[in-house]
Each structure stands twice: as structure tokens, then as C-alpha cells.
Write a protein that binds this DNA or RNA. Structure first.
Lengths: 109, 109
DNA sequence: ATACGGTACTTTGTATTGCAAGGTATTTGG
DNA sequence: CCAAATACCTTGCAATACAAAGTACCGTAT
């Protein structure tokens, strides 16, 4: 899930950790440093992200992460998986409620 | 997620592990015994599920799990959380693509 | 110059969770 | 009485999210 959301965010364009956390928070997704930094490192190690150092106007330089072609491809797959999951949950939610079905075997203690 | 899906399934009525696995598989959710049994135990320990032993016509007796009032309440909360997540992902997905925004600071190497 | 506050990146330890694999028990059929 | 089928459970391992603490860089004020 988080991988998916981070990749979705980065599809808009390069960004760095603190900014990603901010943008996710705006979307009501609470993520902290200790979660995001290892996640970004892992996605980079897997070739889905790359980064460029970029100097900041104030403070230390930042690692701007962006999608690689592989990352974009994986994002498409995650997108399909998400749609599938949403469909599945929709199915489960629309299922008939507690009414006992005709063929149910009665529960004997 | 899995908690949510299992609770959704059990909202239809009591069921036991092997049957839950089957029904989830029909919904394209692959779950195995080693995952489900501890999950059911945990939900029961937390008071969201209860179970009754029920003899089977063929084979050993089964633990039929069903939602408790607490379980139904938590399910409603998870439902709200799911809707919120779906909304969030929808937002992230509908975000503008890679076009550089006007105010972007140019990347300097 | 240097000390401090703010920004950014990283690491370590812990709890949770999903899975593979293997184990126990009960029932039915040969 | 043994084997196959069904059902429940446990153990060990890998992945991941978090809290917390650590390191480093920058600009500013002393």
C-alpha cells in the first residue's frame, strides 16, 4: 500500500522525504521518517526509484527521488492490483447480510 | 486488510477456517492456514469474534466463527477507514502527471 | 570563531503480520 | 487396525512500520 502511494506521488515529479511525508499527510496518510527512509532506500535498491542530490536554499542538500522506467511499470502493476482489490472488497461488502440461507446446516451444540 | 475482509465475510454468517479460505479464494484473495488460524485466534482474543464447535457430517468438528457486537462495531470502523483509503488513493491517482509546475525550483547538479 | 537551531538523512531495536512447513487429533472407509 | 481426509494449531522466518536516537550540514547570532 505505502509503496503504491509513494510511487503515485512521485509520478507527479521528483520529491524528497520530508516533502513526501507532508504531501501524504495532506492526503490523510500518516507516515513517519523511520518508515519512509527505509522504504525509499528499498525502492531505489530495487530499481524503481532513482535520486539526485539537490542543494536547498536553506539547510543541507536533499535527495530528490523520481520514478525510473521500471518504477513506472511496477506502478502500473500496483494500479491494476489496487483496482482488483477494490473490486474484491466491493464484492465482499455487497454480500448478503446475516439472514440464514435456505440450505444452511443448522448449528447443533 | 485481511482482518477487514474476514470480518466482511463473517457478516454473512458463521463460518470456519477452511471455508473462509475457500470463499476468499473465490474472491481472488489467497490466504493460507498459517495466516488465517492465528488471525482468527487474535480476533477472538480481542473480542471481535466468537465461535461454536459444530460437528461435521464428515470429519472432525469445526470451529464456526461469528461476529460479536464488538466485531460488528469494529467492522463499521474498518469500513469507514477503507472508504477513506479508497478516497485517498483516488486523489493520488487523479493527480496531475509529470509536467513541471510553474513554481518548481530547477534542479541544479 | 563558534555555538545554536533548523533541516535532512540514517540507523537500531521492537512489535506485528503473513507464510511455509510441520505437527496433532478426529472421522471414515478399506 | 491402518490409511486418507479433514480440521485445528504451532514454530520459525522474513518483511515492514514505528519510535527513538544518532549524524551531518547550513545559516545566523553571539
Amino acid at each position: 500500500m505505502l509503496d503504491f502511494c509513494v510511487l503515485l506521488l512521485l509520478r507527479r515529479g521528483p520529491s524528497y522525504a520530508a516533502d513526501i511525508i507532508l504531501r501524504l499527510k495532506e492526503a490523510e496518510l500518516i507516515v513517519v521518517e523511520g518508515t519512509l527512509y527505509p522504504l525509499l532506500s528499498r525502492l531505489r535498491r530495487d530499481g524503481l526509484l532513482s535520486y539526485q542530490w539537490q542543494e536547498s536554499l536553506q539547510g543541507p542538500p536533499r535527495k530528490y527521488y523520481s520514478l525510473t522506467p521500471d518504477g513506472l511499470r511496477v506502478l502500473d502493476e500496483l494500479d491494476a492490483a489496487w483496482e482488483e482489490l477494490a473490486r474484491t472488497v466491493g464484492l465482499l461488502k455487497s454480500a448478503p447480510p446475516v439472514l440464514p440461507a435456505p440450505g444452511d446446516v443448522p448449528i447443533r451444540l
